[in-house]
């Protein structure tokens, strides 16, 4: 850069100083103002909520489509029947409990059982209140495609799985059979199970449910055998019929030590949870969410519209709401 004449060397000094002083004062003022009160970390609402002065409810959406279906129908009804504005946030299961406790979300509509978090937040801190049954019973298990189970009926017993290990082999399974697991956020004992049942399988984590579904569909298209961690209710069963592999029977407490689990997964009645403050003062919205209760078929109907017909969740919810007035009418009353 050429040496320009330094014409700006003499600045209006007082002016600049004044501005500096003003800035300083403003900063100090702000600091003092904010330091005088304690900030409540349990009242942390989303900045996007209530942007236009409406009553707002924030719901957490988990990454699986069933949860999206719950949230879609709940938000449609909240918006169109009760006049709320609904914000949704996508959060994984465990962080969602934390967010619920902090008031970042007002409700979780489908929880698959997190005893540790329940102890901490519901019994300990009392920042979360149970919101009752969702009405759907969830079950986790190991599944093989039905077309394969029909050809080899004995594959549905875990004792015979080793026989098929070489057919389930993939490049990722280190020479063993592949047991495909999904998102790391899901409840799983599979590594311990494989070890304790002494199976010739390797647990391969797909890393996300999306990746797992994509892979299952791809296998099904080729009619290849596969063994996967999966759960019901799930819309994918309608597209890729799968049969459960029987694991050693579940008994109360057999999964207490995560290292020593050697039994099947339980059947879990899925639960709703509300932020305590919202539960007490949430008015109609809280009452509605507590009453929200539907069955497997209803949830799957909406899930399928979202996942297979690729309808946006709002439209799927709209369609369902229009056709099922008798189901939801009691919730909003």
């Amino acid at each position: 850069m050429p040496a320009r004449p330094p014409r700006t060397v003499r600045p209006p000094r007082t002016n600049r100083r004044r501005r500096l002083a003003a800035a300083l004062a403003a900063t100090t003022g702000l600091a003092v103002l904010s330091a005088c009160g304690a900030a409540d970390m349990t009242r942390q609402s989303s900045p996007y909520a209530a942007a236009q002065g409406a009553k707002t409810v924030t719901l957490s959406v988990q990454s699986w489509v069933g949860a999206q279906a719950n949230t879609a129908v709940a938000s449609y009804l909240l918006e169109h029947e009760l006049g709320y504005r609904v914000d949704t946030v996508q959060v994984d299961e465990v962080p969602a409990w934390d967010a619920l406790s902090q008031g970042r979300v007002d409700a979780i509509l489908e929880d698959w059982g997190h005893p540790e978090q329940e102890d901490r937040y519901v019994k300990g801190k009392k920042t979360i209140t149970p919101g009752g049954d969702l009405g759907v019973t969830g079950h986790i298990g190991w599944f093989v495609p039905t077309y394969f189970a029909e050809e080899h009926p004995d594959v549905t017993d875990w004792k015979n799985l080793d026989k098929y290990a070489d057919q389930m082999r993939t490049p990722e399974s280190r020479g063993k059979g592949q047991l495909m697991d999904g998102s790391p956020s899901y409840v799983t004992n599979d590594k311990a199970l494989v070890k304790n049942l002494d199976l010739d399988y390797e647990v391969v984590f797909a890393g996300s449910e999306a990746a797992q579904i994509t892979q299952i569909k791809q296998f099904a298209k080729e009619r290849k055998p596969f063994l996967t961690y999966w759960y019901t209710p799930q819309w994918l069963f309608e597209r890729v019929p799968m049969t459960e592999v029987k694991l050693p029977e579940y008994k109360e407490g057999c999964d207490a030590d995560p290292e020593k689990v050697a039994c099947a997964y339980p059947h879990t009645p899925l639960q709703k949870y509300l932020n305590t403050r919202f539960s007490e003062s949430g008015g109609k919205a809280a009452a509605f969410l507590k009453k929200f209760h539907w069955g497997v078929e209803e949830q799957n109907e909406v899930s399928l519209m979202i996942a297979e017909e690729k309808l946006p969740p709002e439209q799927a919810a709209k369609k369902w709401v229009e056709n099922n007035r008798e189901v939801w009418e009691p919730w909003v009353r």
Partner: peptide, 20 residues
């Protein structure tokens, strides 16, 4: 890539986020 089965460190980070 931990999200699509890359495993290793990526999976650990995803796990850390997902399970807190």
């Amino acid at each position: 890539g931990g999200l699509v089965g890359g495993g290793a460190l990526g999976y650990d980070v995803v796990l850390g986020l997902a399970q807190g």
